[in-house]
Design a binder for these strands. Structure first.
Length: 545
RNA sequence: GACGGGCUAGCUCAAUUGGCAGAGCAAGUGACUCUUAAUCACUAGGUUCGGGGUUCGAGUCCCCGGCCCGUCACCA
């Protein structure tokens, strides 16, 4: 429907199909380029490449063939065809009959042309499909003159089907010896450089399909991401968790400290926000009696982008009734190690040169007391610098940047991220946070100031955040009110928001609960050995052009 | 947001001090029936990110803007 406004040209297009313009006619007035998106901007050189390919498309039609047929009956993937031949070869090797080189029954494979080596009346074509690649060997005297003619109309990037037996060429390459070649999709734009691949970072992110076609690591990371999520799901199901989906469009963006995106529902005439966390809805389900619940989903935070932040990202949050943060800690280290083992075969992630040393995810991970660790790394004892003034003074003394007008909790967060986190390359838990930083976590039984909260760190960045959930509705209301005050007092857009519906829910009684939030993009970065979230997200956020 | 690096043919990259904008791949034509970065010959292909300035002359120097990358700041 996107091109509906061009329907006046349909009749003419139809004519073009029935009477395609031969290639060598001057195409200026004979054959107008169809309206291609972006044509206006495309350079002359690029347009010529497209015209050449469109001319070949017309020639294919002129031979009575459809360059975009609706289906192709593939019998084997590249992988299966290769295995079929190897099996045949193994059988042939055991028999005494050496007169005939091995050859399989005819197969049909399909894929994209990655390279072509023409030899006059023969050609070698490298085909790539979703499982690997295989060479096709086309010879005029095998295919016949008429069938072979199509081979001269092929370009790198076209998607074709090849029918024939699988053989091994004299140079040893397993190949489908074509009896028939079928164009399945004529490509009218060229692929990136076949040898160097696609190097331009910007195009890699903006046109990820090109990256997937030409760079193996792009495909590897995409598949890894999928496997990580699958492994995570099965781990959670294995522990009896129920997977749910909760609203993304919400009236109050609560449950975390972040700036939300705003939007508007026209018919309800009501402002809505994109969620910044799944936390509060999931806890309502705990109130409702779903004792183990999780959601894997997209969160949206209106903040800057860099190598490990994207405005939309994916987390898993889970809540388990009758568990506390110690139980969650055990679950996190087990889950991460399990996922690493399932997706890479080992709990020990290899060194990535210039990026990180070997990372050993084998449980248990060391638990570090947050207060002790801050003292050790910075000399600051947050129990003795309980107000923003004295904490800022201590920070300045140690050369830590202090953002004027920040709340105490935010300052301490800065101390942690600049002094402690960089040392946590191997997996660690930082345990027991001050209440000011954690409006949704329950206080430790013996303390008014410390809550049962931990964060998991690997490679110097936060991987997970978890706590024993606050289920005292009176305390929770006070904490929200304190957050609302922070928004006013400090102009802190990111203070958490009071969510009355949630308070009403837990006023009905939420059992003791252990909760978790874990960044799936960052987990995948870790397992992939990538430094940038953009290597993991298929379509990362980009500035406008 | 600040600072630094980058942007040249469809792709990957050159271009000395400011002095005719080049190569490989891809494309086109021709040769070639076992190649695999096939080979050989020839041809075509450029708003050097955009705009302004300095200069006899700007890919190169200066200013403004765009986008990408990096560091820092901000941000869980």
């Amino acid at each position: 429907m996107a091109y509906a406004e061009q329907s006046d040209d349909a009749a003419q297009d139809d004519l073009q199909q029935k009477f395609p313009t031969p290639r060598n006619m001057t195409n200026q007035d004979q054959q107008e380029l169809p309206n291609l998106p972006g044509e206006a901007e495309s350079a002359a050189g690029e347009r010529k490449l497209i015209e050449d390919r469109l001319a070949k498309t017309a020639q294919i039609r002129a031979r009575g063939l459809d360059p975009y047929p609706p289906r192709f009956d593939r019998t084997h993937t590249s992988e299966e065809a290769t295995r079929l031949f190897e099996d045949a070869e193994a059988v042939a090797g055991t028999s005494a009959d050496e007169a005939e080189p091995p050859r399989t029954e005819p197969v049909r494979v399909a894929g994209r042309i990655m390279a072509r080596r023409g030899m006059g009346k023969a050609a070698f074509i490298d085909l790539k499909d979703g499982y690997g690649s295989i060479q096709a060997f086309a010879r005029q005297n095998t295919m016949g003159d008429d069938a072979y003619a199509i081979v001269n109309l092929l370009d790198i990037g076209d998607i074709i089907g090849v029918e024939g037996s699988v053989i091994r060429t004299r140079r040893g390459e397993i190949s489908v010896e074509a009896t028939k070649v079928t164009v399945l999709t004529k490509a009218i734009r060229p692929l990136p450089d076949k040898w160097h691949g696609l190097q331009d970072q910007e195009i890699r992110f903006r046109q990820r399909y090109l990256d997937l076609i030409s760079n193996d690591t792009a495909m590897k990371n995409a598949l890894l991401r999928s496997n990580v999520v699958r492994s995570m799901r099965s781990f959670m199901h294995g522990r009896g968790f129920i997977e749910v989906e909760t609203p993304i469009l919400v009236p109050v963006a609560a449950g975390a400290q972040a700036t939300p995106f705003e939007t508007h529902h026209n018919q309800l005439d009501r402002d809505l926000y994109l969620r910044i966390a799944t936390e509060l809805y999931l806890k309502k389900l705990i109130v409702g009696g779903i004792e183990r619940v999780f959601e894997i989903g997209r969160l949206f935070r209106n903040e800057g982008l860099d190598h490990d932040h994207n405005p939309e990202f994916t987390t898993i949050e889970s809540y388990q009734a009758y568990a506390d943060y110690n139980d969650v800690m055990e679950m996190v280290e087990s889950m991460v190690a399990h996922i690493a083992e399932e997706t890479t075969g080992s709990m020990i992630l290899p060194e990535v040169e210039g990026i990180r040393p070997e990372i050993d995810l084998t449980p248990p991970w060391p638990r570090l007391d947050l207060r002790e660790e801050i003292k050790k790394r910075s000399g600051i004892d947050f129990v003795e610098t309980r107000d923003a003034e004295s904490l800022s003074a201590a920070m300045r003394e140690r050369g830590i940047h202090v953002e004027a007008g920040s709340a105490w909790g935010r300052l301490l967060d800065k101390v942690i991220s600049s002094e402690v986190e960089p040392h946590l390359v191997q997996p660690h838990f930082l345990v027991d946070y001050p209440v000011e930083m954690s409006p949704l976590a329950k206080r430790k039984p013996d303390s008014d100031e410390i809550v049962e909260r931990f964060e998991a760190f690997v490679m110097g960045t936060e991987l997970a955040n978890a706590f024993t959930e606050l289920n005292d509705p009176v305390d929770q209301r006070e904490r929200f009110e304190q957050q609302e005050r922070m928004r006013l007092d400090f102009g802190d857009d990111e203070a958490d928001r009071l969510d009355e519906d949630f308070l009403v829910a837990i006023e009905h009684g939420m059992p003791p609960t252990g909760g978790l939030g874990l960044g799936i993009d960052r987990l995948t970065m870790l397992i992939a050995g990538e430094e940038s979230i953009r290597e993991i997200l298929l379509f990362p956020a980009m500035r406008n052009t």
